[in-house]
């Protein structure tokens, strides 16, 4: 996630990180025979989906403004 400059790849890497956390949650839920981990994994999934909605919306908005898709060059927040 730190290496790439393309915001799309950054979002994809973020998905991988969240999925790793999900896998750990579910593995320990199974290990401890406790359903809370699965509930939390489902909540993480919902948060990841909303984050993708907002992130992809931002990318599309940037693309419409002809802003280069490069996180190093996105240093200004003015619209």
């Amino acid at each position: 996630m730190l290496l790439r400059r393309n915001p799309l790849i950054v979002l994809l890497s973020l998905e991988i990180m969240l999925n790793g956390a999900n896998l750990a949650l579910i593995a320990f839920a199974r290990h401890l025979d406790n359903g809370d981990g699965q509930i939390f994994a489902l909540a993480v999934m919902a948060v990841a989906a909303s984050e993708v909605v907002v992130g992809l919306g931002l990318i599309v908005a940037l693309n419409r403004k002809r802003v280069p898709l490069d996180v190093d060059r996105l240093s200004s927040l003015r619209g």
Binding site: A46, S50, V53, V54, L56, G57, V60, A61
Partner: peptide
């Protein structure tokens, strides 16, 4: 509620740029 806010945010981001 988080999903609802994300949906509204996506719509606003899309319509704003257009």
């Amino acid at each position: 509620i988080v999903l609802l806010v994300a949906a509204i945010g996506g719509v606003i981001l899309g319509s704003h740029s257009r």
